[in-house]
Write a protein that binds this DNA or RNA. Structure first.
Lengths: 128, 128, 128, 128
DNA sequence: GTGGTCTAGACCACC
DNA sequence: GTGGTCTAGACCACT
């Protein structure tokens, strides 16, 4: 899987890592139970610090996206992805709110927004 | 207009300010051309430093949401809001992408996402 | 003569006034010895404070562009415009330097810059 | 690179910094991709507050002259300088206009002005 | 009274 | 170590 980092982004590198792995699962490029590179290997591959990869993996584990086994290494959670909890929905709304407010302000209609959302949805699901 | 700040949030205070003012315009609570509080007044009202407010105002001005008149004060841009540029759409997609990837991963359908979006859209537009 | 002020410009209003009057003389719209509106009238016409107009006139007088007579009012200096002094040339170079550096940085050639300069020169001289 | 600040100038210190760095790039003293001093180092070197340097760097970043890498430092944009956009040309004309009007008023010919411009252009390009 | 600038000094996240 | 954010308090130009 190809990881694409923007070193100038305001987003921390570990967050970018988290999102790229989540997107990998969302697109099907990463299967449930599939092994991920070790912290050490991934860090070397993408040229970032060990701590950075570690932080990303730890966050992914906390949210239930991956499992970290002492010896076997890191795998995408074979029991499936975390469910849509109320906490998640609240967080999602908080993140969407300012984006939608800005769009509304600039005159985008609900339909236009829906189209953008739908576009991205399909783009992630079928990245080929 | 009521400003609601979360001092514990990971979002910088000035960003929260920016979004709340944008939402104020989006909801119609702030009219085009309407005066905003002076830097110092707003800072005192919400209990933050004047530089923090200043930064928020400066960002809003850069994006064309407000005008800062020399020694007269700050007003919502009377010439209307900034348009939907390609830059804006790109930025919007970049912000939406990880949110949608996460939703997809957890099994939300496109329709469910659209409903959430629609909900928030109306919530902002009709906050009563 | 039509005065055009930009209340949002970073340039102080009195400076804008100074430049517009200088441009009026440069274009020939204002003749040597021609009367300018009184401080009071001009302030009322363009909707700014008396002090602002006063400051502009005072600066113009200091540089020798106009004369201010107690009773007769304000006139464009009938003895001609101030000469090209070394001080003026130094000030001019200081002002031009950052503009030219920026142009050079972005890849404008000396010829392109000269064309822009020539354009503006003619535009001011023949504003019709 | 030697930075020369005039603390008495009407130009804000951060603007002087911006222009000096742009001139450094224009003259070739600063190469594309070259590292600039950290905010704190530069501030200490030239004896100003770190916020002042920060503001200069932020402005340079906004215009595309430099890149600010997360926790790694500041470099001259390795992808080249920002292009000559219409916005830039408009801003340039606005800045040149009053300077040219004044010169015209005092009787400088187009050729004299062109010579001054050419002088400064070469002076910046070949500062030795 | 307005925003613009500057200082001094602090804490934080990231790497 | 880096930049990002925030505070407190000051002076200035402009209107």
């Amino acid at each position: 899987m190809i990881i694409n980092l923007d070193m100038q982004s305001e987003l921390p590198i570990y967050s970018q890592l988290v999102y790229q792995i989540i997107e990998g699962v969302a697109s099907g490029e990463l299967q449930l139970g599939e092994a991920l590179p070790s912290v050490r290997n991934l860090a070397a591959d993408i040229g970032v610090n060990l701590h950075t990869v570690n932080k990303a993996y730890t966050l992914l584990k906390q949210d239930g996206y991956i499992q970290i086994h002492r010896q076997k290494g890191v795998v995408v959670n074979p029991d499936g992805m975390p469910p849509v909890t109320d906490d998640f929905l609240n967080k999602q709304r908080q993140e969407l709110r300012p984006i939608i407010a800005e769009a509304l302000c600039r005159g985008m209609s609900k339909e236009e927004l829906s189209t953008v959302l739908s576009d991205i949805y399909e783009e992630i699901k079928h990245p080929y």
